[in-house]
Design a binder for these strands. Structure first.
Length: 696
DNA sequence: GTAGGGTTAG
C-alpha cells in the first residue's frame, strides 16, 4: 500500500526516493531472506516520513520537508528538493547551509552555494555569514576568504566567523590582522582571538589580549572568555593570576559552568596546587569521564599514587565508564610504580567491559606488563592486538631487552621490520639497549649504522648515548671517544653518565674524570655523579679523593638521594629505605637477614665492600651493606609470601654490586625466583644466577 | 531576528 502511495506521488524528487528504496527492496534474491527482514523494517520506518515529505511538498511547504530530511541526515535528498523549487526562500538556504555546517558536509554545502549563485539569489549578510561559517567549520578557509572578500556588506559576525576560522587548519597572524582592522569588536571577537592564542600555545599573547579586553569598554569576560584565559594561566603556571581569576568567578559566579570549573581545576593542578584542584573537582556536578581522567592523572603526575588509584576506584563505583585515556593513564602509573597486581586488576576490568584491542589502551597494557617485568603477559596482550602500533612493538622490544632476553628483543625487531611497519628513532633505543645488555657490541654497531643508512632516520642524542654505553661497558673506550668526537650534537648528560658507568666497571679513572667534569657542568645538583666518582676512587683505594668528592658535595649542598626499594604484596606497596627499621615486621626481617647472611657465607659469599661511599672499617661496611633497601625488601618478600612465590622488588637507584651478588645467593638458598627492577633494567635471579649475566 | 566564542585525559 505504501509503495502504491509512492507511485502516485507527482513530486519527481520523491519519486526518485521511491525508486531508490523500492529498488533495494526488490533486488533481493530468494536466498537472501535473512537480510530481507531488516531492510523491510527500514523501509517501513522511513516510508512514514516519506509520506509526510510528499505531502508537505504537495502543499509547497518545502522548508518543513527540507528540515525533516536534514534532521534525518538525508542531505542529498534535501538537495534534490531544493532543485525542484523555483525561488527558494532565504530561510531554506540558511537551513540547508547550517545543516551542512553541523554535519561538516562540505560537498553539499558547496552545492547549495553554487545553486544560490546560479539562481540569481542575492544573499544578505546573514546568509553570507552562514556560508562563511560553513566553509570555516568544514576546514575550507580559502573558500571562506574568497567569499569574505566578495561580500559587499560585512558585520561584526562576519569578522568573528573569519577570525574563528583562521584560528583553527588557517593562520593566527591572519586572524589577528582581521581582529585589528575590524571596525568594532564584541565579546565573541575577543574570546575567539584569545582562544586562538591558547590553541597555538601562545599563552602570554592570550593573556596580553585579555588585559587589553579588560581595559576596553563594553566587553565583559564571560564563561567562554574565562575558560580560555584559565587555560592560558595553566600554561604559564601563574598561580597568582589563576587565583585572581578564581576570585572573579566567585564574585560573578552566576555565569560559570562545568567547563569553567574544569578549566579552573586544571589550572590549580598545573600550578601544583593539587588539593585545590581536587576541591573544585569535588564541587563539580556534571563530572564527565574527561574531568575524572584529568584529575586522576594529576595525582599520578605529582607522584601521589595512592590517591590516584583511589580516585580511579571511585570512578568505577560512580558508574561512569572509563575510556582508553583513563586506562592508559592508570596503566602507565602502574608501569611507573611497578604496581603489577593493580595493573592486572585493571586489565581484568578492561576485559570484562570489552576493551578495544585496536586502541592505545592495549599498548598501555603491553607497556605496563613489560615495565613490571612480566614479559609473558606483555607478549600475550601484544599477540591479541590485531594491528599492534609502534608503541606496542617498542614496549615489547624494550621489555625483552631489559628483562634479560635481548635475543627475543632482536627477534621481535626483525619481525617488526618484516611486518612492513616503519621503525622510528625510539624503537632503535630499545634495540641498542638490547645489544648493550647482551654485550653484542658489533651487532649493536651494525644496527646503529642502519638507523641512517638503511632506514633514513636522523640520529638523536639518545642513539649516541646508547652506542657510547655499548662501547664503554665492554671497555672499548677509544671507539667511544671517537664516536663522541664525531657526533654532530653536544653530548648530553645521558651520554656522559653512560660513559662514567663504563669507566666504573673497568676502572678507567682518567676518562671517568672527564665524564664527571662534563656532568658537574651540566647537572651539578645530581648526586649520582658524585657517588659514582667517589666509588671509582674508593675501588682504586684513593681515599683522599673520596673525601674531596664528599667535601665537594657538602660545599655545593648536594644531598645523596636515598636508596628506596619497594615490594607489592596483595596490592599494598611496602617501602624500604637504607637501614630501615620502621616496617611493622622489621624485627623479623632483620633476624631473617641475619640467618641468611650466615648461610650465604657458608655458601661462599664474600661481601664486596668496594662500592661504599664511606671510608670506614671493614666490619662497619659489611653492616651498612646488609641494610641496603633492596635486601630488606627481598627479605620481607620471602617471609611474607608462600614458598615458591616469585619475589618482585623495585629500586629507585641502580642496584649495587654487593646486593647483586647477595641476591644471587639468596635466590639459591631460599629457592625463589627474585626479580629486581632497578633504575635502568631488570635483574631476574634464579638458582644463584642473574639474567643480566653480571653485565649491567 | 537569525549567526559568531570555551576547558580538561595517553
Amino acid at each position: 500500500m505504501r509503495r502504491a502511495n509512492f507511485r502516485t506521488s507527482n513530486i519527481s524528487c520523491v519519486n526518485q526516493l521511491n525508486r531508490t528504496t523500492s529498488c533495494s527492496y526488490s533486488s533481493q534474491s530468494q536466498e537472501d531472506s535473512v537480510r530481507k527482514r531488516p531492510v523491510r523494517k527500514t523501509f517501513l520506518k522511513s516510508s512514514n516520513n516519506d509520506d509526510l515529505i510528499t505531502d508537505l511538498c504537495k502543499h509547497n511547504k518545502f522548508k518543513e520537508a527540507i528540515d525533516i530530511l536534514c534532521n534525518q541526515r538525508r542531505l542529498k535528498e534535501a538537495l534534490q528538493i531544493l532543485h525542484q523549487i523555483s525561488h527558494p526562500s532565504p530561510s531554506i538556504y540558511s537551513s540547508l547551509i547550517q545543516f551542512c555546517r553541523q554535519n561538516r558536509a562540505l560537498e553539499e554545502g558547496k552545492k547549495v552555494h553554487s545553486h544560490l549563485k546560479s539562481s540569481g539569489f542575492k544573499p544578505g549578510v546573514f546568509i553570507s555569514n552562514c556560508l562563511l561559517d560553513m566553509y570555516a567549520k568544514c576546514g575550507n578557509i580559502s573558500d571562506a576568504q574568497t567569499l569574505f572578500d566578495e561580500m559587499q556588506e560585512r558585520d561584526v559576525c562576519s569578522y568573528n566567523t573569519m577570525i574563528s576560522g583562521f584560528t583553527k587548519g588557517g593562520s593566527l597572524e591572519q586572524a589577528r590582522n582581521l581582529f585589528d582592522e575590524m571596525p568594532q569588536r564584541d565579546n565573541f571577537s575577543w574570546t575567539a582571538m584569545i582562544s586562538g592564542y591558547v590553541r597555538y600555545n601562545q599563552p602570554i599573547e592570550a593573556l596580553d589580549l585579555y588585559r587589553m579586553m579588560q581595559n576596553f569598554e563594553n566587553s565583559v569576560s564571560n564563561k567562554f572568555t574565562l575558560s580560555s584565559v584559565l587555560s592560558a594561566v595553566s600554561a604559564i603556571q601563574c598561580l597568582r593570576l589563576g587565583k585572581e581569576i578564581h576570585g572573579y568567578i566567585m564574585r560573578t559566579g552566576f555565569d560559570s559552568d562545568e567547563v569553567v570549573w574544569s578549566a579552573l581545576s586544571d589550572m590549580y593542578g598545573k600550578c601544583g596546587s593539587i588539593n585545590e584542584a581536587r576541591q573544585i573537582f569535588d564541587k563539580m556536578v556534571d563530572r564527565d569521564v574527561v574531568s575524572w581522567t584529568a584529575m586522576i592523572g594529576r595525582y599520578f603526575q605529582e607522584g601521589r599514587r595512592e590517591e590516584g588509584f583511589a580516585l580511579f576506584s571511585e570512578l568505577i563505583k560512580s558508574g561512569i565508564r572509563p575510556n582508553a585515556f583513563t586506562f592508559a593513564g592508570v596503566l602507565n602509573a602502574c608501569a611507573d610504580h611497578a604496581a603489577e597486581e593493580l595493573g592486572k586488576q585493571v586489565h581484568g576490568y578492561m576485559t570484562r567491559i570489552g576493551y578495544d584491542p585496536y586502541s592505545f589502551a592495549a599498548s598501555a597494557l603491553v607497556h605496563m606488563y613489560s615495565k613490571c617485568g612480566n614479559v609473558e603477559n606483555s607478549k600475550k596482550v601484544f599477540n591479541g592486538m590485531p594491528r599492534p602500533d609502534l608503541v606496542s612493538w617498542t614496549s615489547l622490544i624494550a621489555g625483552y631487552a631489559q628483562n634479560g632476553m635481548p635475543d627475543k628483543a632482536l627477534e621481535y625487531f626483525e619481525l617488526l621490520l618484516k611486518s612492513g611497519t616503519q621503525p622510528d628513532h625510539i624503537v632503535f633505543v630499545g634495540v641498542l639497549t638490547a645489544c648493550t645488555h647482551a654485550g653484542l657490541v658489533d651487532k649493536g654497531l651494525q644496527y646503529f649504522h642502519s638507523i641512517k643508512e638503511k632506514h633514513g632516520l636522523t640520529y638523536t642524542a639518545d642513539h649516541y648515548a646508547c652506542i657510547v654505553d655499548l662501547l664503554a661497558r665492554s671497555g672499548r673506550f677509544h671507539e667511544a671517544e671517537d664516536v663522541i668526537s664525531k657526533m654532530p650534537m653536544k653530548p648530553d648528560k645521558f651520554l656522559w653518565a653512560s660513559l662514567l658507568g663504563g669507566c666504573r666497571i673497568h676502572g678507567n679513572l682518567d676518562l671517568a674524570k672527564r665524564a664527571a667534569e662534563a656532568l658537574f657542568e651540566i647537572e651539578p645538583e645530581n648526586p649520582a655523579t658524585y657517588v659514582t666518582m667517589a666509588n671509582i676512587y674508593a675501588s682504586a683505594g684513593k681515599w683522599s679523593e673520596v673525601a674531596s668528592i664528599r667535601k665537594l658535595m657538602d660545599d655545593r649542598g648536594v644531598v645523596k638521594k636515598p636508596g628506596l626499594s619497594w615490594i607489592e604484596i596483595q596490592r599494598d606497596a611496602h617501602v624500604f629505605l637504607v637501614g630501615d627499621t620502621s616496617h611493622p615486621r622489621s624485627k623479623e626481617i632483620h633476624e631473617f637477614l641475619g640467618k641468611l647472611s650466615k648461610r650465604m657465607k657458608e655458601e661462599g659469599y664474600v661481601p664486596d665492600t668496594n662500592f661504599v661511599l664511606h671510608d670506614v672499617e671493614e666490619e662497619q661496611k659489611e653492616q651498612n651493606l646488609s641494610y641496603h633497601s633492596e635486601k630488606l625488601a627481598v627479605a620481607f618478600g620471602i617471609i611474607a609470601t608462600p614458598p615458591g612465590t616469585t619475589i618482585k622488588v623495585y629500586k629507585n637507584l641502580r642496584t649495587c654490586v654487593d646486593c647483586h651478588t647477595a641476591i644471587k645467593f639468596i635466590s639459591k638458598i631460599a629457592k625463589r625466583k627474585i626479580v629486581v627492577r632497578d633504575s635502568s633494567r631488570f635483574h631476574s635471579f634464579e638458582d644463584g644466577n642473574c639474567s643480566c649475566r653480571d653485565y649491567w
